[in-house]
């Protein structure tokens, strides 16, 4: 009896939103690299102010996970990748076309607040007393970190290759790691717990963020408007506020 009641409640819960809400509201599902978490939440709010008929559903994660999900049929309307390789996977699968680069991001060395190990640059990351964590080479942040270390001619031995860049940031902010290579935007988002050490231009790797409407989007026009907004001056201003550079 109780089971039947539970099922009934569940059904009501599933059915009721479409009945009670006005039909004009359109959901736009955005799959975005986890480094975009804070920026997209704000951009989404801003966009909704002028486009009241849209409601955003964000799915943040590592860009490679998201690309896998999309190629396996996840219902995304927009895909914003933290690198070009994962966007390429989606393009190759024929699930998107003509991506636009809407932002770029640079790398920084994240260290615990106060920089207790006095890390000045990438060369210090090879010091034996430094516990270094990187993102796994299979995720963009990890790949970029290795490129930067190579440019600097540094052979570093990370103790861990974390599954995404947020995990790297967490290990540093918890004090388990002395340093990690993350995006400038990550350091800014965790400014209370970590500090950033800049990487000079000649060792820098720039991550370009492509965005595209995914094939089969419920409202491609609306999805396109969101991409237009991100590349507009207002959108760029918000992104810059979170540490992103212009494309």
């Amino acid at each position: 009896m109780r089971g039947v009641l539970a099922i009934a409640l569940l059904l009501t819960a599933c059915v009721s939103p479409s009945r009670t809400e006005t039909p004009q509201i359109t959901d736009v599902t955005v799959f975005a690299g986890s480094s975009l978490t804070d920026a997209f939440a704000r951009a989404g709010d801003d966009f909704t102010k002028t486009n009241t008929r849209v409601r955003f559903i964000f799915n943040f994660g590592s860009s490679s996970t998201l690309a896998t999900q999309i190629t396996n049929g996840a219902p995304a309307d927009v895909f914003a990748s933290a690198d070009e390789a994962n966007m390429q996977k989606v393009l190759d699968a024929g699930l998107a076309k003509s991506p636009r680069t809407f932002a770029s991001n640079e790398l920084q060395i994240a260290v615990p607040t106060g920089n207790p190990k006095r890390i000045a640059g990438l060369a210090d990351l090879a010091r034996p007393d430094i516990v270094l964590v990187l993102a796994a080479p299979t995720v963009p942040a990890g790949k970029y970190a290795l490129e930067a270390l190579a440019k600097a001619g540094v052979t570093a031995r990370p103790v861990s290759q974390e599954v995404d860049v947020r995990a790297v940031l967490n290990k540093v902010s918890l004090g388990e790691a002395d340093a990690g290579i993350v995006y400038v935007t990550d350091v800014r988002s965790a400014a209370a717990r970590v500090a950033g050490v800049a990487i000079p231009d000649q060792q820098q790797v720039v991550a370009r963020y492509p965005i595209a409407v995914v094939k089969g989007a419920k409202d491609p026009q609306l999805a396109g408007q969101f991409i237009d907004y991100l590349t507009s001056p207002e959108g760029q201003k918000i992104l810059a506020g979170f540490g992103f550079s212009r494309p």
Binding site: S64, T65, A136, T138, P158, V159, Q161, V163, K171
Partner: peptide, 22 residues
Amino acid sequence: FAGNLPGTTQTLPLAVYIALET
């Protein structure tokens, strides 16, 4: 807790997760 480093802490499920995407 232990992170993910091949040969040290990268167990089968971690390797599966990392390899799944590439």
